[in-house]
Amino acid sequence: MSRPEEIAPPEIFYNDSESYKYTSSNRVQHIQAKMTLRALELLNLDKNEPHFLLDLGCGSGLSGEILTEEGYNWLGMDIAPSMLASALDREVEGDLFLADLGNGIPFRAGTFDAAISISVIQWLCNADAVGNDPKKRLMRFFNTLYALLRRGGKFVAQFYPMNDLQTKQIMEQAKVAGFAGGIIVDDPDSKRKKKHYLVLTAGQSDRNLNLAGAQMDAPEQRKMSAKMKKKMESRKDYINRKKETMRRRGRVVALDSKFTARKRRPRF
């Protein structure tokens, strides 16, 4: 399976022919639409109110069209001029910006109600040019994103991580910027259909994210009974525990050293 991220930087990879292929492919359209709808479902915005959304890496506006259909006003940004040109040809509703997300998103604080991003942020993990530090770029991206969302704003990003390290790196930078949230994996068992969604909130929101059906992956710590604990402990633990108890009762106890609870050799 080839990854476009490994071939060339986005503004070069998505040239005229590639963006035409991308935009005219029914399969891509279908998948993009599905992922956009899923992202909106996770955002859980109030349908009765108008919202102003930011589409990061809007490309040719495949996701933007869904946003328009769902009744949202949006603004899109992308780094590939060819993709934006095909977005213009398709007469999408939102404003379009040519910008590099890794250099920060140039908007005033508190502008957007929410942001989505479909199949984009894994590009930020690449160092495409001299002096490009993915960590710094991710940090700049998340910092500016945090600022431009209103308090309680939400951000859902579908992305294709190359490995767990990338996921960790992205999550880490998002946390540093002040976001709370995590990653939702849809269809974790299927290699092809597996989709990662980064789900973040900036501050407390009155409307929570829609996490219906999500299973927590964090391993549960089973509480052990005192009896079990005693059974599991080693000889050394046992001696240290007894010494601690005696010390608490005020008895004179030998000081702890590296020899405490060591086994005596036969030559002793």
């Binding site: 040809d89 007469e91 404003d95 910006f97 920060g104 140039p106 908007f107 005033r108």
Partner: peptide, 19 residues
């Protein structure tokens, strides 16, 4: 013009991108 352009409202949000 048939294509969408930069709306006036956007000018109220956009600021300089330099760090």
């Amino acid at each position: 013009y048939n294509t969408r352009n930069m709306k006036f409202i956007t000018t109220n949000f956009v600021k300089c991108a330099v760090k």
